[in-house]
């Protein structure tokens, strides 16, 4: 079925159990389409149950998506997107901002223009490019490959790898995992193990790195 694209302040909501979700954002599209009937009411809501849900939306559409075990794939450029799965893998191509959470599914974000917030229990988190980032995982590895804003990363036992694009602050914390933070060679970060240490530090730095690991190694480098 097809229906008009949502107003700028509205979102398309998609929910499935075991069914996969595939969203395709298209530049020349002016209305939304889905293989599953949308429920009546506002916001526009699609409930796929165990069926696979295919949705096509105009570029820039805001989305809220959830599944239990179904994989969620979003291709093209969308607006603000929130995705929640239990074990389903999450793959997002390009969004204005991202909130993605999975208990055990892997989370992959290719490009988030703004904030990228990711929460995972055991799945690996891979963000290729983002603005500000807030990523947390219990045991899955966190990789923020090109962060263009301040970063907060928390991992209990997995490794945290952050490559920062400019003079942006980083706050990274693990109990036992290793922390690797890298900056462009021209950036001079001030490195500390607590916020209190920063207050006593001398000026002359471009940004701050607060990195705490109980037993893991902390490495801050330039590249």
């Amino acid at each position: 079925m097809s229906w008009p694209a949502p107003a700028p302040t509205a979102v398309v909501r998609i929910s499935t159990g075991s069914g996969a979700v595939h969203v395709q954002a298209e530049a020349d599209r002016t209305e939304c389409w889905s293989n599953v009937d949308a429920l009546d009411g506002s916001p526009m809501t699609i409930d796929g149950g165990s069926s696979k849900v295919e949705v096509r939306v105009p570029e820039g559409t805001d989305l809220v998506i959830g599944s239990t075990s179904g994989k969620v794939t979003v291709d093209g450029r969308v607006g603000a997107i929130s995705v929640l799965t239990t074990s389903g893998r999450i793959s997002i191509d390009h969004a204005a901002s991202v909130d993605a959470r999975s208990t055990s599914g892997r989370v992959e974000v290719v490009h988030a223009d703004g904030e990228c917030r990711v929460v995972s229990t055991s799945g690996k988190v891979q963000v290729d490019r983002c603005g500000a980032a807030d990523a947390a995982s219990r045991s899955g590895r966190i990789v923020l490959a090109d962060a263009h804003g301040p970063v907060r990363a928390n991992c209990t036992s997995g490794k945290i790898v952050v490559a920062v694009a400019g003079a942006h602050d980083v706050d990274a914390e693990t109990v036992s995992g290793r922390i690797d933070v890298s900056y462009p060679v021209e950036v001079r970060p001030l490195v500390a193990s607590s916020a209190a240490d920063l207050a006593a530090a001398t000026p002359g730095h471009d940004c701050t790195v607060v990195a705490r690991s109980g037993s893991g190694r902390v490495v801050v480098s330039t590249r």
Binding site: R13, V64, G66, T68, S82, L84, D99
Partner: peptide
Amino acid sequence: FQPVGPARVKGVQAPVWLHR
């Protein structure tokens, strides 16, 4: 609050919509 998504809970047909 910001939307997080719909969570499925055992024994409940409809999803529970969550917010941060």
